[in-house]
């Protein structure tokens, strides 16, 4: 029960996110109008994706150090949840972009970087599929996972900032300044980020446990 505390927190925060995100007061801005509410749902996906990917890279490093099969299972499940969040982030972002920027997939460096990042993690799953031996699969995909993470981080944090982008925080646009978000919005936004991240870890934990059960069962046979 003690370990499950975070699930209660996650549910509470998500309920708060949905209620306040849809019903709370938001400032009126040109072009954005009511679609500014997307910030409560779209941005936390990316934040939690980064968190989950960091966890995945961490467990890959630990797998290389200790060669415990549990670490490999964790690394792959965190990466899977990150792919899910990335796809959801792309979908919500696409919807938002169609309203504000007039295109479902505008030519924006951040979008393209993220698409490339997703390709990298799809390649990671394909790489895993091409091995029979468990130890070999674990070690080699861990190497690729760390490599991909090290390329992914500059890809989405550094490169878009060097060129012009529609996203805030890039190409000289401000990010998280008072212009973007007032204190009223922050009170909903930060809890949403925490809530979605906790949900992501919850999903990953369930999948990890499922995998563990399947492994123990197959070992018994």
């Amino acid at each position: 029960m003690k370990k499950d505390g975070y699930k209660i927190v996650a549910v509470g925060l998500l309920v708060y996110q949905i209620l306040m995100g849809l019903l709370g007061e938001v400032p009126r801005r040109e072009i954005l109008n009511e679609s500014i509410r997307c910030v409560y749902f779209h941005v936390p996906m990316w934040f939690s994706m980064i968190a989950v990917l960091t966890a995945s890279a961490y467990f890959s490093v630990r797998y290389l150090q200790k060669s415990q099969i549990e670490d490999d299972e964790k690394a792959v499940e965190y990466a899977n949840v990150a792919i899910l969040l990335g796809v959801l982030g792309c979908l919500t972002g696409s919807l938002w972009a169609s309203v504000t920027w007039g295109d479902f997939w505008p030519n924006d460096p951040k979008l393209n970087s993220v698409a490339v990042g997703m390709l990298m993690y799809f390649a990671y799953s394909i790489l895993r599929g091409s091995f029979e031996d468990e130890q070999k699969r674990g070690r080699i995909s861990a190497v690729y996972n760390i490599f991909a993470f090290a390329v992914f981080i500059p890809l989405i944090f550094i490169l878009p900032r060097l060129t012009d982008s529609l996203h805030p925080g890039n190409g000289g646009n401000p990010a998280f300044s008072d212009y973007d978000m007032n204190s009223q919005m922050r009170r909903v936004f930060y809890p949403s980020v925490v809530g979605v991240s906790l949900l992501a870890f919850w999903i990953a934990e369930l999948r990890i446990r499922l995998k563990k059960v399947a492994r123990v069962l197959s070992e018994k046979q």
Binding site: V116, A123, I126, E132, F147
Partner: peptide, 22 residues
């Protein structure tokens, strides 16, 4: 990495293109 896998002919472009794009 690709040389360790069994069908590395297809794997090499799949693994390398996204990594090389930046």
């Amino acid at each position: 990495i690709a040389s360790k896998a069994d069908n590395n002919g297809m794997l090499m472009p799949v693994l390398s293109f996204p990594v090389i794009i930046p």
